[in-house]
Structures are given as C-alpha cells and as structure tokens.
Design a protein around this nucleic acid. Structure first.
Lengths: 203, 203
DNA sequence: AGATATTTTTGAACAACGTTCAAAAACACT
DNA sequence: AGTGTTTTTGAACGTTGTTCAAAAATATCT
C-alpha cells in the first residue's frame, strides 16, 4: 500500500506549515525565508517545492489556518450576545483583540500579495467571504430593508471600516491610534455606525 | 564654484525620484527594481546609492510626493464645502477618487515597510499627520465637546474607517466592495458615522 | 527475499535581487 | 597645466526563491 508514503508526505507538509506559521508569528511575513522553514521542519531546501507549489502557496495555507482560527473565535463570541447591536460590538472587539494578539499572522492575511498574473484560489477566497457572513445576520436585523447584494455590500463596508482602524493602529503608527486606545476607538466607531445606520435614508 | 556639482547632483536625484515614481505607478511597489530605476534615469546602478541612502529612502521620497499631492487635492476640495458635514463627505469622496486614480502610488504609502530596526524619518511622519488635520476642523464643529488628544484620536479613527473601505476595495478583492460600488459605500459610511457621531454619549 | 520500478529527498547550481567598493572619469581650484 | 576632490562606473558579493539531476528510500512484482 502506498498509504505510508501519503502519510509521510502529509506529515511533511504539515511540519512545513507549522514552521512557516511559527516563523511568520515571530518575524513577520517579510522575515520569512525558505531556508529557515526547511531547517525548522527538518528537511532539505528542495523538499519544500515537492510538498508545495511554492512559497506563496505555503503562505496561503498558513493564512487559511489563521482565517479559520479567527472565524471560530468570533463565532463563539457572537453567539453569546443577545441583541444585534451587541453582536456588532462583540464582533468588533473580538476582531480587535485577535489582531493585536496575533499581529504578525493577522497582518499576513492582508499584506500577502501574489505575483502579477496569479490568482488567489477560490477555496481561499471563500474563507474570506465567510468572515463577512457573521456580520450579515445582525445587520439584516438592524436594517430589514437591505437584502441580497446590498446587504452583503454594506456588511463588507462595516467590516472594512473596523478593519481600517485596527490595521492603521497596528501597522502604521504614523496615522493609527495608539494601541492602548484601539479598543475604545473601535467601540466608538461601531457605536456611531450603529446609531447612524438605523436612520439611514432610503436611496 | 561648486554650484554646478550641486546642481547635477540634485538633478540626478530628481531624475531618480521621477523614474521610481513612474515605475511604481506602472508596476506597483513590488515590481520596483533598482536596475530599472537607474536605467530609466540614465545612470549606472551604483549612482543610486550615491544620490540616496538606499532604495527604501527613495521610496519614501516618492511617497512624500504622493502625500503632498493628496494633501493639496483634498485641501482644495474641502474649502468648497459649506458645512462641516459636507466637508466630511467631500473629504471621503476626494480620498476615494485619489486612491482609485493613483492606485499603485497610493498603495505604496501604506504597504511600504522599512526593515526591522529602521524608523520612518520625522519629517515624513509629519506629512502623514498633516493629512489627518483636515478632518480635525470639521469634526470639532460637529463635536464641540471633543478637544486636544480625544479630538485628534477620533479624527484618526474616522480617517482609518474610510481608508479601510477604500483599501480593501482596491487591494483585497476577496473582501472589498467592487470598485463600482466604492464611492456610494464610502458615502453611506460617512453618512452613518456623521449621524451617529452627533448623538455620541458622554464618556 | 531479491530484483525492479517508482517516488522522494537531497543540496549544488542558477538567476535575480539590493548593496558595496576600488578604479576610472569628471570636475573645481590654484 | 597641475593637483586634489568628488562623482560615476560596473564588476563583484551576499542573500533571496527556485530548479534539477543524482542518490536514497519506498513500493511492487516474481
């Protein structure tokens, strides 16, 4: 049986993802080197290209892990909140917390770019979209007039607004809020958006 | 007089910035190569390191140009708007428009990272902070209770929120709004934030 | 078990990159 | 013209990601 081979191959791939994940968490995406990964995973340099198409694909696999971890964490949190508005606040806070506590891994989600001409695989794109879905339900409660594409679009916009505040705070210390103020600023932003969104004019 | 030498040196530096700017605009920050820059500027590879400390510094000089161009553009626009709320909408729209029309150069402002241990020069940091100042005045009108650090902080947060929507739309097509919806989503966001911010609870 | 076929592992080699530096050229001044 | 200083040059270096032929390991067959 070639089951043994498959197992070894899968095990190596996982060790490579583990090593890449740990290295990104420690040194950031910029400090990630193929030679460091293979050294930590205990294999030769070339083995990386046997287990995985290239370094970009390996980063995508790490990002997939991070995305799922973020999704699970926020799913747990959103369930505990009773009202739609409280769900929104909870989502904002859990996102902020996750980003701060996993700064380098979270950062890799949005700073990693494929070389020109290459496309993000569909399954990974779907994981991103799944993240937004948690906002759709409470938003739909607050704005029953929105549905379908408009609802999806507005949920993306709410996410992006909070994301922007978190990102500039963590990555761009020139214009971002100091990290000690981040949580309260996100709360203020979500609060303002929730108050403002209820009395939105029909277009 | 050594004026001639100074002039030639300044001229070369400017040609290098011109070339780098054009290359970033065409290929993005990722596609920027020292050899392409010097070829376009008409000098040897090593000359770049005589005119400028290194490639990162040259990128900062390009970013400074972009930032000033953005500042001037939005300053013109904000002056035409009569009310504070309309100023905010105008700022959001001009920012969106600038980012879309100068996608690669605008993107470089926020994706360029210095290697670990190096710091952004103070004069460049000040340029970023100047961008936020245009928001402070109208915000202060809408929220006279805010002042000093709280006012500055909230202005940064409003900027970051709009920035997030624009950035995800332009760079991260997985979660960002399609570009055809960007302007109206920014308008909706600014509108909601302005409505919500007026009735903010005293903390 | 041994022989053969297939797959995996290996690490030297390659191309592309930013950066350095000694030699050559250009320049300024007397 | 001669001399000292500055600038320009491009070959060379170290570090990247990636490839690939040879070697080792593994599976399959008789």
């Amino acid at each position: 049986m070639s089951n043994n081979r498959d197992k070894k191959r899968a095990a190596l791939k996982e060790r490579l993802i583990d090593a890449a994940e740990a290295l990104i968490a420690k040194n950031g995406l910029r400090g990630l080197k193929a030679r460091d990964i293979t050294a930590d995973a205990g294999c030769a340099l070339g083995a990386l290209y046997n287990a995985v198409e290239n370094l970009d694909q390996l980063i995508i696999l790490v990002n997939s892990r991070t995305l799922n971890r973020l999704g699970e964490t926020s799913l747990e949190t959103v369930q505990d909140a009773p009202t739609a508005e409280q769900k929104m606040h909870a989502l904002g806070q859990v996102y902020t917390r996750f980003a701060v506590e996993n700064a380098n891994l979270w950062s890799a989600l949005f700073t990693h770019r494929l070389p020109e001409g290459e496309e993000t695989p569909d399954w990974h794109r779907a994981e991103f979209i799944g993240l937004i879905q948690q906002i759709v339900a409470p938003l739909s409660e607050l704005r029953p007039d929105l549905a379908g594409r408009s609802l999806q679009l507005r949920a993306q916009t709410l996410f992006a607004a909070v994301h922007g505040v978190v990102q500039l705070s963590i990555q761009n210390y020139e214009v971002g809020a100091p990290q000690e103020d981040l949580a309260s600023e996100v709360q203020a932003l979500v609060g303002a958006m929730m108050r403002g969104i209820k009395e939105a004019p029909a277009r």
